[in-house]
């Protein structure tokens, strides 16, 4: 018998809103398997999201779920974690949500290293609103707001997280479904903020407007497969060979003190000062 997803799904909320061929379902299933593998108590898991296609995910998941305002998932999640640091707090966001409107929260949550495991499903487009350019849309791509080709350079979300001081940064694609699960599990094991960026397709809002590259959504998955290179395989390779490649795996892991742990020390210090 296969894995029982139904234990963690709100079955009555199906069908989900995602289009056929979308990668968000792959991310959701990987997240469920990761939570199960990590043995997290279902009652003690809080899944927080912002606004966008992938942010509908918490509605389908049978945990404490919080679907917030656009870009603010990490700020809400920070409040939840601060109120009760023993909760397992997971944030799910899209690319526009995480690094455009929510960019400030994203970099500061990386820096703060507060215990929030964050999955960014990066499909390089605003899907829900009809295919506008996102902060990760490649240069030259056609979108509903860049009909002459995108002139606005994209962010590398994982590199941004590393630069902002995140203690755990991993990336993979929806083609690498098993790896998503493994990377989330090791993200749970990192004490503090963990980012798992999952590059995925949006054929309906993005691929369709760039037919030269994508005849169907399968071409988008094929591209994920062909451009991905495991970080362990990049060692010693000249930069020229890595052009156009997407490095996947654990890109960065540098453990550091977790914020609510550090704040506990503040509480002890403050309490101590008072009793003197």
């Amino acid at each position: 018998m296969g894995f029982d997803y139904m234990k963690y799904l709100r079955e009555e909320k199906m069908p989900h809103i995602w289009c056929p061929g979308c990668g968000h379902g792959i991310v959701m299933k990987a997240l469920i398997r990761a939570i199960d593998k990590a043995g997290l108590d279902q009652d003690r898991v809080v899944v927080v999201s912002g606004i966008g296609c992938v942010s509908r995910m918490p509605g389908y998941l049978d945990f404490n779920t919080l679907h917030t305002t656009h870009g603010r998932a990490l700020a809400f999640a920070t409040g939840v974690k601060m109120a009760d640091p023993t909760l397992h707090v997971i944030a799910v966001m899209g690319d526009g949500d995480a690094v455009a409107i929510g960019g400030n929260h994203f970099i500061h949550t990386c820096r703060r290293n507060i215990g929030i495991t964050t999955v960014v499903a990066n499909n390089s487009i605003y899907g829900m609103t009809g295919g506008q350019r996102s902060p990760t849309t490649p240069l030259g791509d056609n979108t509903s707001t860049t009909v002459y080709g995108n002139a606005d350079p994209p962010f590398d979300i994982s590199a941004l997280a590393v630069a902002a001081g995140a203690s755990y940064v991993a990336r993979t694609t929806t083609y690498h479904a098993q790896q998503i699960e493994r990377l989330i599990v090791s993200g749970f094991e990192n004490r503090g903020f963990s980012l798992i960026e999952v590059i995925g397709p949006c054929f309906v809002a993005h691929g369709r407007r760039n037919r030269a590259r994508y005849k169907s959504n399968l071409d988008m998955y094929r591209e994920e497969k062909e451009t991905a290179i495991n970080v362990t395989a990049t060692k010693g390779k000249p930069q020229s060979e890595l052009m156009g490649k997407v490095t996947i795996g654990v890109l960065h892991h540098a453990p550091m003190p977790e914020f609510t742990d550090e704040y506990q020390k503040v509480i002890e210090k403050a309490t101590h000062v008072r009793t003197i």
Partner: peptide, 9 residues
């Protein structure tokens, strides 16, 4: 946002 999150907890 954080205040709302904390209140929910």
């Amino acid at each position: 946002a954080a205040v709302i999150g904390a209140s929910l907890a």
